[in-house]
């Protein structure tokens, strides 16, 4: 799973499929209130697209596209979006994640504010799920060995 293989068919098909999978994942996240789906499901699909890239193109290219550091930043920022919206509601004087109060900032009626608030929360959940899934898969496929450690070991020994 970690080496560059010469499977031309799989590589080309994955190369063509991955952007469409990603846009489909964002569609599932954004249309969670009209059709089945939502933050978690869309995040899983988005993570699956990156996992497909890792399987087909090898570890190094996947690391160039989405490194462990980036995955960590993404997961933290998704959580930040989620809890930020919740805290904003708390600051505006209602319960945690009570989106109705967001109408004070967004200048819309409360029902619409609820819809928008839920959309923001779903986006945060999706980003976090994607990043966490990808980093779990990354850890499994490297076997817990980070390349910096190896380099340091080689330099020392």
């Amino acid at each position: 799973m970690t080496r560059l293989t010469d499977d031309i068919i799989i590589r080309a098909v994955a190369r063509i499929m991955i952007p469409f999978i990603q846009i489909y994942a964002l569609y599932v996240i954004m249309h969670g209130h009209h059709s089945p789906g939502g933050g978690f499901q869309g995040g899983v699909i988005l993570g699956a697209s990156f996992i497909l890239y890792l399987i087909t193109h090898g570890l190094e290219e996947a690391r160039a596209r989405m490194s462990e550091l980036k995955a960590g930043i993404f997961s933290a920022s998704g959580l930040l979006i989620y809890s930020g919206i919740g805290l904003l509601c708390l600051i505006l004087g209602s319960n945690f994640l009570d989106y109705g109060r967001l109408s004070l900032i967004l200048k819309v009626i409360p029902a619409q504010a609820r819809s928008l608030g839920i959309l923001g929360v779903e986006i945060g959940v999706g980003i976090t799920v994607m990043a966490v899934m990808f980093s779990i898969f990354f850890d499994i496929s490297t076997g817990g060995i980070i390349p910096e450690d190896e380099e340091i070991k080689e330099e020392n020994g």
Binding site: I18, P19, Q22, I23, Y27, M30, R65
Partner: peptide, 22 residues
């Protein structure tokens, strides 16, 4: 919804612009 679509397409084409038309 069209605005959402434009934003998501911008994001995805930033993430993987070199894949589809290599």
């Amino acid at each position: 919804h069209l605005t959402l679509g434009v934003l998501s397409c911008l994001l995805i084409s930033y993430l993987s612009y070199d894949l589809l038309f290599a």
